[in-house]
Design a protein around this nucleic acid. Structure first.
Lengths: 133, 133
DNA sequence: TCTGCAAATGCAACAATGTTGCAAAAGAAT
DNA sequence: ATTCTTTTGCAACATTGTTGCATTTGCAGA
């Protein structure tokens, strides 16, 4: 799947900002922050354009957002494996690497009477394979 | 447990802001935001004072922070039931009520080779008992 | 109860992150 | 190539959180 195809598939205009962002997402195994994208992106874009591109790609469901506490916001491609209602992410507290974790196990947590669950976000914090002590 | 006792127990000065905040936390079954505290608190305090009080109470481990995406930050009392390494919270997407969920089940997720887990935060989104459809 | 010191507060300024309105530019269909 | 719609860049603004510093407060010891 190419950036161009992804955009066409979702009937989005093929602009250099969107295409560049998607190419980086496709090439990365980890989630990326706004700053990481900006550093790696050849063209220079306004912050507003970045935010609006994120919103467009989020709305289309091409990428999803991962918020770690208040510190950091990252984005990653939505893959078929990414479950609709159960997201698991890993955050390395040393290097801030953020990854989507694939899990086949359905996690069930008992909610109080009258509460209804739509989705579940799981954030695991720890150290990644490069930062292990 | 009273607000006064909590502060003394942690060797923190008993200021009216801290004591007022803790009284609200002790009286509430749900997590509270900065604004909710401010509205309910009798005295009027500077925003800086609020933030610094949060930091003090967080550092002491008396309260803990719950961040829902980027939208909202809430705080709740840390109870003995609140596990050190596994936190489960519920967020109602309609009324924004946020609750700590007690769970006895230890959740295990397989991480990639070389990854090490320190803690796990689980955020369940849905509708609460007042907002069920 | 008074005194002195360390800690907490309020204020101002600042930083980071995200949003909105609007004119100019670019994409895509004809 | 022309036209129309969408996207972009800019400026301004909003929200959230932090920092430095002078003033005030809490509290321990006399």
């Amino acid at each position: 799947m190419t950036a161009k195809q992804l955009l066409q598939q979702h009937k989005l205009k093929r602009t250099s900002c969107r295409e560049g962002m998607l190419e980086l997402f496709l090439a990365s195994k980890e989630a990326l922050s706004e700053n990481e994208l900006r550093e790696q992106l050849s063209g220079s874009y306004d912050r507003t354009t970045f935010y609006r591109s994120f919103i467009t790609l989020l709305d289309a469901g091409i990428i999803h957002k991962i918020v770690v506490d208040n510190i950091l916001t990252k984005y990653a491609l939505t893959t078929p494996m990414t479950r609709e209602h159960q997201h698991v992410h890993f955050f390395c507290t040393h290097c801030e690497t953020t990854k989507c974790i694939q899990t086949d196990v359905e996690i069930t947590i008992q909610l109080p009477e009258g509460f209804h669950q739509d989705s579940m976000d799981i954030l695991i914090k720890g150290s990644c394979n490069h930062c292990k002590q």
